[in-house]
Amino acid sequence: MTPAKIEKLERLVEAGAQARTAESGSLWRQSFRRLRRSPMAIAGGAIVGVFVLVAVLGPWIAPYDPTAQRWGDEVFLNRNVFPGPRAENWFGLDHLGRDMFSRMIVGARQTLLVGVVATLIGFAAGAAVGGTAAAAGTFGGRWGQRIEAVIMRAVDVALSIPMLLLALSVAALLGPSLTTVMIAVGVAQIPIFARLLRGSMLAQAHSDYVLAAISLGVPKGRIVISHIFPNSLGPVIVQATLVLATAIIEAAALSYLGLGNPDPGNPEWGTMLADAQRFLSGAPQLAIYPAVGIIVTALGFTLLGEAMRESLDPRLRRQG
């Protein structure tokens, strides 16, 4: 045998004895690697990336002050005159003579904030509710199972209330403001997250590695926190991304219904859409910009969420 070939053989046997190298790293890292190869993730990621960038840098990249009624004398509401796109105002002017382009850019921040905060509220509270139910049901004995049953029936009731109605009630309770919209949309997501996490955790609780942990004498609390919970997060994270998309739309809907930010100074896409409806026949472009913005952003998050669902899929994970 030639030395080079002997060496290669030895190396292969050695590498084999150590472990397979093809797909290395933790599951999260592996999922991320798969994600990067997915065209859907790239498209979704690009949209979301641009959106987040604009939201963060908004005030610095906007050409004009979004609240200044600089061209107020060029707009004539009673004659339906709204100057459209032109060299100095790319998206034209709104009904108070403000620069639409600047308003769109600065408005992205509020829109993102609403989506993220609402989703975080839903995620955190939902995870707490669902996680408690699953943990109680799995390890709490007979009493735990009763607690789980009560929690889950409550969640079922909450799920059966239309989300918009739930959000409207919260909004009515707290009065119109941006915080109201965030809380309203977030609260409406709680039952969805709770159900999802509980289901996912129960599935993991019956797996062999949990049985192995019990047989090793790992305390119950530790099993829930370090074994069951991390392995149950995949579908919940995917859901969170998808919920971000709906939360943005929901928030826009609430703003449109007049429950959003009453302060016209701080632009937000949903409120802009609501304002534009009065001039829909004369100046449809005022509605189209924020509407397209909302749709594209929601699409971006949805694409990203779907791509994540695929890359976290346990069936793919089992391969190799």
Binding site: D208, Y209, N231
Partner: peptide, 12 residues
């Protein structure tokens, strides 16, 4: 010692 060696090891 379990039957399914992969299933009995926490993947994370």
């Amino acid at each position: 010692v379990f039957q399914d060696p992969l299933g009995s090891l926490n993947p994370r």
